[in-house]
């Protein structure tokens, strides 16, 4: 008897549950961002951006925190988010998966982005313009596996300069997870060398979070395009004609230095899909994109 009650309760709740899922309102613009920095602060970072966009666009806007780069791409592809602050690589991946989607805005700094190679003081490596071949045989950490500045570009330039796979160049290769963690790990000596997004490095140095007597910049990659806002192509149909242009205007019109500091960028400018072709080519050459 108890079992039957249990069963009927379970079934009815499952039905209720699936109804709730189906009846969810689709008219909220949901966005996310790749978790490239301190993950405990994601909601603080992007919650206010949602408020700003909501005011500018006149539709409800929601930010959902996501744990990995790949999960942001998946959510975008599944239309669970319509707008995302992607890295160069994740943006390219997302636009390949969702035909019709558009890169609409990028940071002022993004067309000329850099990766910094940083090293623990114990290595004795010093800053130079030439690629520091002394990194060979050290332990090395990337950021996230899906990161442009933390993985794709540094891997490309290291392999190009050293003429060998990173696994053979270094004694040990790790993935810290995000840029702030990379800095922390190289500073503590858990890894001797690391690759970090130059904006995150400069911001953390400025905020006094980095002990520059223990970890320092040793090399800077050539410039490449990186982060951008990408929106799904079907938003105009869902939210009304010209919606993606409205979002674009709202992002480019974002002038509040506090909000811009969340990215951290000095402002947003226009972007188009072809701006990121170099990333696609690099990803193909490394084998991340077939």
């Amino acid at each position: 008897m108890k079992f039957k009650i249990f069963l009927s309760v379970l079934l009815s709740t499952l039905i209720l549950f699936s109804n709730m899922a189906l009846s969810a309102s689709p008219k909220t613009l949901v966005f996310s961002a790749i978790p490239d920095q301190d993950e405990t602060r994601l909601k603080q970072r992007f919650g206010d951006i949602a408020k700003y966009l909501e005011k500018q666009l006149g539709v409800p806007v929601k930010y959902v925190p996501v744990k990995s780069y790949a999960a942001v791409v998946t959510a975008f592809r599944n239309n669970q988010i319509q707008l995302a602050w992607f890295g160069g690589l994740s943006g390219v991946q997302a636009r390949l998966k969702v035909p019709g989607s558009q890169a609409i805005a990028q940071g002022v700094e993004d067309p000329k982005f850099h990766t910094y190679i940083i090293a623990n003081h114990s290595t004795g490596l010093k800053a130079s313009d030439e690629f520091p071949k002394g990194v060979a045989g050290k332990t090395f950490t990337f950021g996230s596996k899906g990161s442009t500045s933390g993985r794709l570009m540094p891997q490309y330039y290291i392999e190009k300069n050293m003429g060998d796979k990173v696994d053979n160049v270094f004694k040990r290769v790790g993935f810290s997870g995000n840029h702030s963690k990379t800095i922390a790990l190289v500073q503590s000596g858990a890894y001797e060398v690391g690759a970090v997004n130059f904006k995150v490095w400069e911001k953390e140095v400025e905020e006094g979070k980095v002990d520059t007597s223990k970890v320092s910049l040793i090399w800077k990659t050539p410039a490449y395009p990186d982060y951008q806002w990408t929106i799904r192509g079907d938003v105009d149909k869902e939210f009304g004609e010209g919606f993606s242009n409205k979002v674009k205007a709202a992002l480019i019109g974002l002038k509040d230095p506090d909000l811009l500091g969340r990215f951290p960028r000095s402002g947003f400018i226009e972007a188009k899909n072809s701006d990121f072709d170099p990333i696609l080519e690099t990803a193909k050459s490394i084998g991340i994109i077939d």
Binding site: F17, A21, A24, K62, A75
Partner: peptide, 11 residues
């Protein structure tokens, strides 16, 4: 179910 529910949809 009320606790785990969020407003994402599946297709």
């Amino acid at each position: 179910p009320f606790i785990v529910a969020n407003d994402s949809t599946i297709s």
